[in-house]
């Protein structure tokens, strides 16, 4: 491993005079999970969307180690190039499963879509892989032809994860993957995510306001406030020995709960 998978430099996004995020630089190495925490409005989702190509930042570069051309600024890619990237090497798990699923397509079809988008043309294989992935996210094979509308919130989120991971992406973006779920459902999902991350050696960027999520999943951590990174480091270090006053507040407020 001589170079990072992702190299983010000087990302900034403004909404009129208001700062969305500014001056954010970091790198991500293969197999590494980066957590981004902060309260709502801290700019963490803006940052994630800028990096993932859903929002156009006003400044900065996002280099990704592409299979063919090596390090390449994804912000300068053409739209087709970026779309190919986002359905092959990249994956995006939305907070709201409805944003990441096709609600009128069966669970099997949802998982199979990415495979078909990259050229899979054998129904039996596609179905077998869908069944395998449903199993990995603990959805019974018998539900394969049901639509996600018939699923609980936790199941929908697990289905979304299966749909994203089925093509073996090299980088996964997650936006509050456990947000909006019941606490018990959250715990199960976190467990599942942790084992998937370990088994697959996933590289991921996870945005969350929940320190428990990063404690469990992230190797490294960035803390954001008012659009800027106020502290960054190894997860355990930052959480156990927070340096910035705001991080101290975040950590202590969790401990008090």
């Amino acid at each position: 491993m001589t170079q990072p998978l992702l190299d983010v430099r000087g990302i900034a996004k403004f909404y009129g005079a208001r700062i969305g995020c500014a001056d954010v630089s970091f790198d991500l190495w293969p197999g590494e999970v980066m957590g981004i925490v902060g309260e709502s409005g801290s700019g963490k989702s803006t940052l994630l969307n800028c990096i993932a190509g859903h929002l156009e930042p006003d400044a900065g570069e996002v280099f990704f180690d592409t299979r063919v051309d090596g390090m390449k600024d994804t912000l300068l890619m053409s739209e087709p190039e970026r779309r190919i990237l986002s359905r092959t090497d990249w994956a995006f798990v939305h907070q709201n499963a409805r944003d990441g699923l096709r609600m009128i397509v069966s669970a099997g079809g949802n998982v199979g879509e990415r495979l078909m988008a990259v050229g899979a043309r054998h129904y039996g294989d596609i179905r077998a892989r869908a069944i395998d992935w449903l199993g990995r996210v603990e959805i019974s094979e018998s539900r394969i032809d049901d639509r996600p509308t018939a699923f609980s919130g936790g199941m929908q989120q697990r289905l979304q994860i299966a749909r994203n991971l089925v093509t073996g992406p090299r980088l996964v973006f997650m936006d509050e993957p456990t947000g909006g779920l019941d606490v018990s459902v959250q715990a199960r999902l976190l467990d599942l995510l942790r084992s998937l991350v370990r088994e697959m050696g996933l590289s991921a960027i996870i945005v969350t306001h929940d320190l428990a999520v990063v404690r469990l999943l992230a190797d490294r951590l960035m803390v954001m406030k008012d659009g800027r990174v106020v502290e960054a480091g190894l997860t355990d270090q930052v959480l156990d020995d927070p340096q910035h006053a705001y991080t101290q507040l975040l950590v202590s407020s969790v401990l008090q709960v």
Binding site: R83, G108, G109, G112, M116, V118, R121, Y123, I126, I144
Partner: peptide, 19 residues
């Protein structure tokens, strides 16, 4: 069409067969 994003077309065929 411009971006050759035709995965959805096969999703339709997949759904047909599964149903």
């Amino acid at each position: 069409h411009a971006l050759e994003e035709y995965g959805l077309m096969h999703v339709k065929l997949y759904e047909d067969i599964s149903k």
